[in-house]
Design a binder for these strands. Structure first.
Length: 801
RNA sequence: GCCGACGUGGUGAAAUUGGUAUACACGCCAGCCUUAGGAGCUGGUGGGGCAACCCUUGAGAGUUCGAGUCUCUCCGUCGGCACCA
């Protein structure tokens, strides 16, 4: 049978179609992160995750679960647009060519997707609801427009979210990101910072990903201290996360962008120098600003702040390049107990003092070590620094009216507008006075116009569309115009898992019943690179939509109950695969040479699912050989036509138990090795007689890994149905256990011999048998046995003097 | 700098609660089959040693009858964050 024929049988029998209304207890939603359909086609990394979820989904189906296992396309995005700029081919055309290629490749691998639920984020049927989601955010005050310093990539000619900036570089183009003051649209994800942080404790995700999200949210508790500027009506608030050293602070630095700077120096002799410094710091790239090794730069404002902890003391106020406006308050109390502050003070000869007595250390500065005894710290002089003391100090400062307990977060609001063409248009219209109005829901989808010049020019391409202008005036009146920015593609992917529940609904993004039935996603699989992008945004969407009453409360606060990350597959040279290195493996070629089953199994056999592992072209043969041997043995058994009618062999029960356990734990590599061992041991054949029952069970188990081969063998073994529809074979735990075990004899902890004994034999029996072995005698002869330790079924350790 | 993960043969890697280290596969070696094989099959394969034996999970120490697994120190690789107050 050709793979296409098998594929057709699956299609015809609707095996993979998810039921409309499954029993809640029986439903399982198994989801892959949907791909961006790139022109390069499928990468070997895609089938790694897809095979894992396919094995999982097929296994659950055979176990009698109602499985939703869909696939779709994250189809908006820059590459198609850049390709259009280069070639003139419309993004819609190239995207759909790519989708067709991806679908063909994915189908050739035999994944059990329910294709009736396919979604495409670039289709008006889909982005209509993306726009609708935007309107919900807007209505509930979670979408807003504001002028702000934003990340701008000159190559991509668009703004970027904080999450899309890596080391000050654009994650796409790898070019430096610059700061620009622009009016942009934001989603208020910061409203959900605490929930996004706390609810991490409720989900089964890799700890590594949870940690990355925790760090990204960056919740920090500390105190805010207000300072009056001497002889002025200005108050400067500082944030401090390390309250123990507040008494050490002797000066204050302020971010160049701080709104109070101009007023501080207005009309003074310092004004010129300070304002020059401000303009120098402006328009520096994030990378430049953020380089920790860079020299600290500052300028004195000529002003002093009154230290509320020490009202006689005057703290000089400086501007410093390392003070960041978007962290804390933009103003820092500085002391000698911070490496950075100390370096700055040294450079500019600012007086410092130490308030921690240390013994045996020459290091004068260390801000993060909560130890030592305080000196010169008001009522706390002489106290040892520890968590309780810090808390006490804060209480005291709060009582004195010096400080307030405050919390800051690293997380910023999500910048979602983009000055690009190939995305969902933001459904907002401006009246002639420039006031913002939400586009009426009945006008959705607000179609992406086609009469657009999408060559980059720093403004949004939609601005060049005559039809878009005309449409706004037609719908709203003269002088009205639509927002010309489009949405970040991460908005589209933040809710696609909801659409799969009810993908063809034209009245709602999904019916409440369908959401109630399928949510949450039980198993979500994809790469770790989305840790603080998609995976954070989707969680925010879920919570916000649920708060709007659009997602049933019964499904819980989290969209993805369990998450597993696939490890990256490196090239055969142990390097990251890339065109320039020429080490890219094309899955199509592997399928042509060895077949889809071999590719699937090889990728699962390479190593632990979540670890980085190199491709080894030679090793694939091992899998191919294994599958060929399975086929040969089954055919041999069928041809022999003899069935052994006796007690079932033990091996198959142990195998089913082991593989089942491994699949549930995502340990596919060891599951496959167990199947290989089973085949090598061949306990299903004896004296030319075959245990066909065992062989059938074996094929059923293997079918979730190698569906094409097993579908064919299933048929050849005389089964009329599809193995995809067969039940997962049951195992008998009693039969799975061996009657005998091999125990090791250790002399002083070194293994010297082994012996076979009945399972669960008594300790006395095991000891007696161990001591009578000639090997044991040889090592104990002439020595005194001091002690014998027996670990049932494992070891007898004889301690001799 | 801070946080986290990892380190086992020539290679990818196995190893329930601490209990026979190197399963399974690749590669390599030998043999069989073959006109031939980049096919298939069988056997061998951690290192040292003629052998008895000895050594071996990045290095070193510790706990234990027993450590790849637990604790500490160090080294290395990878990932995240980073003038974050």
């Amino acid at each position: 049978m050709k793979p296409e024929e098998i594929h057709q049988k699956w299609q015809e029998s609707n095996v993979f179609t998810a039921p409309e209304y499954p029993e809640t207890a029986q439903k399982r939603y198994v989801l892959d992160m949907f791909p961006y359909p790139s022109a390069q086609g499928l990468h070997v990394g895609h089938p790694e995750g897809y095979t894992a979820t396919d094995i999982f989904a097929r296994y659950l189906r055979m176990k009698g679960k109602s499985v939703l296992h869909p696939m779709g396309w994250d189809a908006f995005g820059l590459p198609a647009e850049n390709y259009a700029i280069k070639t003139g081919v419309h993004p819609d055309t190239s995207t759909h060519d790519n989708i067709n290629n991806f679908r063909r490749q994915i189908q050739s691998l035999g994944f059990s997707y329910d294709w009736s639920r396919e979604v495409d984020t670039s289709s008006p049927e889909y982005y209509r609801w993306t726009q609708w989601m935007f309107l919900q955010m807007y209505k509930h005050g979670l979408a807003y427009r504001k002028k702000a310093k934003v990340n701008w990539c000159n190559t991509c000619q668009t703004v970027l979210a904080n999450e899309q900036v890596e080391d000050g570089l654009c994650e796409r183009s790898k070019d430096p990101v610059v700061q620009k003051d622009l009016e942009q649209w934001f989603f208020k994800i910061t409203d959900y910072a605490d929930q996004l942080l706390n609810d991490l404790d409720t989900i089964d995700w890799p700890e590594r990903i949870k940690l990355m999200q925790r760090n990204w949210i960056g919740k920090k508790e500390g105190v805010t201290v207000a300072h009056t500027v001497a002889d002025m009506d200005i108050t400067l608030n500082t944030f401090s996360a390390y309250a123990a050293w507040l008494f050490a602070d002797t000066f204050i630095v302020i971010a160049p962008e701080h709104p109070a700077v101009a007023e501080l120096v207005k009309g003074t002799e310092y004004e010129k120098e300070v304002m020059e410094f401000v303009s120098q710091m402006k328009n520096r790239s994030t990378a430049e600003r953020g380089d920790a090794d860079k020299e600290k730069l500052g300028v004195f404002t000529g002003r002093y702040a009154i230290d509320p902890l020490n009202p006689e003391s005057r703290m000089p106020i400086w501007l410093a390049n390392f003070a960041l406006m978007d962290f804390g308050t933009g103003v820092i109390r500085c002391s000698a107990h911070d490496v950075r502050d100390y370096e700055f003070a040294q450079k500019y000869q600012i007086a410092t003092r130490e308030v921690v007595s240390r013994t045996e250390t020459s290091m004068p500065v260390n801000a993060h070590e909560n130890s030592g005894v305080l000196t010169d710290s008001g009522p706390f002089t002489g106290c040892s620094i520890n968590a309780a003391l810090i808390s006490e100090m804060i209480d005291w400062m709060v009582a004195q009216g010096i400080a307030e307990r405050t919390t800051t977060y690293r997380l910023r609001d999500w910048l979602i507008s983009r000055q690009r063409y190939w995305g969902a248009p933001i459904p907002v219209v401006y009246d002639p006075e420039g006031n913002i109005h939400a586009v009426k829901e009945e006008y959705l989808p607000l179609l992406l116009p086609t009469d657009v010049d999408y060559r980059p020019k720093g403004t949004s391409p939609l601005g060049s569309s005559e039809s878009y202008k005309a449409l706004a005036e037609k719908l709203y009146g003269k002088g009205w115009h639509f927002e010309i920015d489009t949405m970040d593609t991460f908005v589209c992917s933040s809710w696609y898992y909801l659409r799969y529940c009810d993908p063809n609904n034209t009245k709602e993004f999904a019916s409440q019943e369908s959401l109630k039935v399928w949510l949450p996603v039980d198993m979500y699989v994809g790469g770790a690179e989305h840790a603080v992008l998609h995976l954070l945004y989707a969680r925010f969407f879920h919570k916000a939509l649920q708060d709007f009453g659009l997602i049933p409360k019964s499904v819980g606060r989290e969209p993805f109950k369990a998450l597993r990350n696939q490890g990256m597959i490196l090239g055969p040279d142990h390097q990251k695969m890339s065109k320039s290195r020429g080490n890219v493996i094309n899955p199509d070629e592997v399928v042509n040479q060895y077949g889809a089953d071999t590719l699937r199994m090889y990728e699962m056999f390479m190593g632990p699912f979540d670890e980085v592992k190199p491709w080894d072209t030679a090793s694939i043969k091992g899998i191919k050989k294994f599958l060929d041997r399975v086929s040969a043995i089954v055919r041999e058994a069928v041809a022999a036509g003899k069935e052994k009618h006796q007690l079932e062999s033990r091996g198959i029960h142990a195998l089913i138990q082991g593989v089942q356990r491994d699949i549930e734990a995502f340990r596919f590599n060891t599951a496959i090795s167990k199947m290989m061992i089973y085949l090598n041991d061949a306990d299903f054949v004896k004296d030319g007689m075959y245990d066909m029952h065992a062989l059938k069970k074996f094929v059923a188990v293997l079918s979730v890994f190698a569906p094409f081969t097993c579908e064919e063998l299933w048929f050849e073994m005389g089964e009329s149905g599809l193995v995809a529809q067969a039940a997962w074979p049951e195992f008998d735990p009693a039969l799975a256990e061996k009657a005998e075990v091999t125990m090791a004899v250790q002399i002083n902890g070194k293994t010297r011999a082994t012996f076979v004994i009945a399972k669960d034999a008594s300790q006395d029996d095991a000891q007696t048998q161990a001591l009578t072995l000639s090997e044991t005698k040889k090592w104990t002869e002439g020595k005194q046995i001091k002690k014998v330790i027996v670990v049932p079924n494992k070891i007898v350790n004889v301690i001799v003097a």
